[in-house]
Design a protein around this nucleic acid. Sequence first.
DNA 1: GACAAGATAATCGTGTACAATAAAACATGA
DNA 2: TCATGTTTTATTGTACACGATTATCTTGTC
Lengths: 150, 150
Amino acid sequence: MVQPILLDEQLCFSIYKAQKQFNHFYAQALSKYHLTYPQYITLLSLWEHGTMSVKQVGQTLSLDSGTLTPLMKRLEKDGWISRSRSTVDERRVDVSLTQKAEDLRDEIFEHVQSCATKVGMDLDEYRAVKASVDKVHEKLMAVSDGDLRY
Amino acid sequence: MVQPILLDEQLCFSIYKAQKQFNHFYAQALSKYHLTYPQYITLLSLWEHGTMSVKQVGQTLSLDSGTLTPLMKRLEKDGWISRSRSTVDERRVDVSLTQKAEDLRDEIFEHVQSCATKVGMDLDEYRAVKASVDKVHEKLMAVSDGDLRY
DNA sequence: GACAAGATAATCGTGTACAATAAAACATGA
DNA sequence: TCATGTTTTATTGTACACGATTATCTTGTC
């Protein structure tokens, strides 16, 4: 006899819902800049590392070009980034921040921080949760390299 | 001076990546049944509660009809569920499981469980992570009811 | 220098996700 | 009755997310 698997007792479902709620949180926090969460973390990566190829951005975000290309085009249309073929290696498309993105960096940081403060999480608790989620992520990565399909 | 916000130190990003990895895990685990993770949790909800309206399923999964209607149509096409207008209240569409879905329930449960075992998480640890993620979710819900947009 | 092998981005197809709107059906009070 | 407001589902439009394929470019290797 197999026990029923209750949705509300599953970690995957908790993370699924938390991720959606984070999306909603950032949708509100970033609405004045007309940025989505994936667009925001793309900018975060560029603010952190400077000009990079699409491939490199993808590695920092665990996203492939099928996701990034249209997302980048929207960011370019809205004046956050510029894209250009590398002259060194013409397979590469280098992505760099515009002056607008540089100028708004600190303002956006501060605004997001002020919104995050309202969530009211203790810093030690924050780090503890993050560490345990990271551990789950690592275990999932390890097992997904194998074959679960029979 | 504003400190740079490092992506790898952010809980939202950890949860974002963990959610994607869970998706990948279930994509492999469920590939022999041609089910995606959202389709699977839809079936889980129906296995748990029995026939429900689209609205009710949405409440158990935190999804709206814009997501569920096309998803349900695919589940119906693949023979997992049947959809029919309620005779009591003709605004409602009741969703019920087919014989195939009932028959495969225990087999799918067992198969998913066997895959989950390979992740190798301690039960106490599993519950601890889940509890802390749930707490984050609750805090995000609370703050998102307010207004973060100024 | 030609050619095979590998790298890189773009494109396409499928499947979520959600906001906004529309449409239909029910409930209620005047 | 019937007008009004509410509930419920469907539809539309925008934006990810990823697998598979394609096109182009670079780098050996001979």
